[in-house]
Design a protein around this nucleic acid. Structure first.
Lengths: 323, 323
DNA sequence: ATGAAAGCGCTAACAG
DNA sequence: CTGTTAGCGCTTTCAT
């Protein structure tokens, strides 16, 4: 392997000069800088990451805990990760995908100095990882907005506002009886932060608007249409619905299109998903990639020691459906 | 931070003893081992990953290049990654998600000694990363089966056999004119390894069976039904199809269910996806998580210096559709 | 503007 | 069975 000593020798300078050329932390004569740069290029030198982080006490790596389990909307997760990765690359950070998804995985990564910061996805309303994170000496950002994370930076889409927005829009379209078809039961039962907040926003707005609103867990896939049919059977005057479930959306949309019911449908999902479905009244886009980018940027801010707001919520925007 | 010296002091032994207790590379008396273990637990010691890898010349990290771009089947990608992560955890490896998706990202990770091995997904039939990988001194595994990767270990689902299997099954069901509705055009145009192989297997089997077979790129979403309609219009006697496109599958299935055409449909997708769709004749499961696990295991084999076959292809299995 | 050298925390000889 | 110590490759004081 090529070491900094090889580069120094090739360039006819000392080791520290090579180091300073790379870091820019010292003024170096143009001539020397060129010779070093040339040697680096010639030898295809890349500094040994571990040696560097041992000496500098920083890794340029962000630890990421991402949900790979079932029930989550995979497009959303992938896009958030893509956003994180893209932003991280521009900041010269790499992403360590933690292979353990509990609190101990986080503290291990931190104590072993594997990461400069931690990014935690799929946060539950009352998440045990929160107190662990608060006790660590590496900065962290949550994607989600759990209860009692006062000390931590949280970034997410504003699902509560999205729920309210959807209810308002349904009311505006003249619907009086409305329903939210949401995440699969396992996600709701875990009290995943975003699902809880969406429900809260939707129902509270229904209350204020004197709408009759209900919430239904919704399985992924064709089964979802049975849930919809059951709800419609029980409440025939239901006329407007909000769907927050990627996997169910196309099935429900197709089902309603070929059925007698005239339902106003709002979809809450990434814009690209909404585009692939026809028959929607409106949609509210989940800016998934933006969430990831915002989270990575918040982390950059923390790492740079900036003073930041603790909570960043991306606002929902109503879009008329393409069809 | 807690260092090995702290542990040694607390346990009343030398630092090398602590090191050997952790690695098990030396026989240590039970008593000493217990004292050290206790000190480690008390102090919540985790060895500094960089210091360890600098000294030991290994990182216990696998570098992963995963496709986060559009067009790929996100479920498949997520499940493959989940398989990799799960297997990696059991092997005590972490996953570094490389934020650059080109050849230079691979050689950088290798030269900087950031990883012990590389795992590359979304391989194209003639992929520029192949010769880069061959020149590196870290072992690597490709997920895919490109042309001319003679020196490299490749793991994948046997898409060619799957294409043949589907054609045989369609023939068996009595269809004479068949079509493959495959990945989006951008994926086919990139000559992604799996898409190429599926086409090859499907068409060659059609040939042998004297079926009239055709292949059609297929957009994701409701638009896909237009492609199907267009093909059916041009070839009304088409009676059997193979769908290899997660994002199009539910739309096409729903569309055909409410249309006059009586088509035999085989889906090629993860089993969980097939389950969510009704109206399928049969399905062939893509064992996505298994691919990831097999790839990680192949890497483990390489790292352990085992003699291994260069190509591992998971065989396709026909499943009657749940509905 | 440049060098020399002292660590960073650990592993693995080498020495009992 | 255990301890001492020389590196691993780099960053960063001190020097000059």
């Amino acid at each position: 392997m090529v070491t900094i000593a090889d580069v120094a020798r090739a360039a006819g300078v000392s080791i520290s000069t090579v180091s300073y050329v790379m870091s820019g932390k010292r003024t170096i004569s143009q001539e020397t800088r060129d010779r070093v740069a040339e040697a680096i290029a010639d030898l295809e030198y890349s500094p040994h990451a571990s040696a560097r982080s041992l000496a500098s006490r920083s890794t340029n790596v962000i630890g990421l805990q991402a949900p790979l389990r079932a029930g989550v909307d995979v497009h959303v997760v992938m896009q958030i990760v893509a956003g994180i990765v893209t932003e991280a690359r521009s900041l010269q950070y790499d992403i360590l995908l933690l292979t353990s998804d509990d609190a101990s995985g986080l503290s291990h990564a931190a104590r072993a100095s594997m990461v400069d910061a931690l990014l935690v996805m799929d946060v539950e309303s009352d998440d045990p990882r929160i107190k662990t994170l608060e006790g660590l000496d590496v900065p962290s950002v949550l994607i989600g907005l759990p209860a009692g994370a006062d000390g931590l930076v949280c970034v997410d889409f504003d699902f509560e506002a999205a729920g309210r927005l959807a209810a308002h829009r349904l009311a505006e379209l003249g619907h009086r009886r409305v329903a939210l078809f949401g995440a699969p039961a396992e996600v709701l039962e875990r009290h995943t932060s975003y699902a809880d907040r969406l429900v809260r926003g939707f129902l509270s707005a229904c209350d204020e608007l004197a709408l009759v609103g209900s919430v239904h867990a919704c399985p992924t896939g064709a089964e979802s249409t049975q849930v919809v049919d059951a709800v419609l059977a029980a409440e025939p005057s239901l006329s407007g619905i909000l769907i927050h479930n990627e996997g169910a959306l196309p099935h429900i949309a197709a089902h309603l299109a070929s059925s007698a019911h005239e339902l106003g449908v709002i979809a809450l999902c990434p814009a690209e998903i909404a585009q692939t479905v026809s028959g929607l009244a409106d949609s509210i886009a989940i800016p998934a990639e933006g969430i990831g980018a915002a989270a990575a940027d918040a982390l950059r801010g923390l790492l740079a020691g900036e003073q930041r707001e603790k909570v960043v919520l991306l606002p929902p925007v109503l879009a008329s459906a393409g069809a």
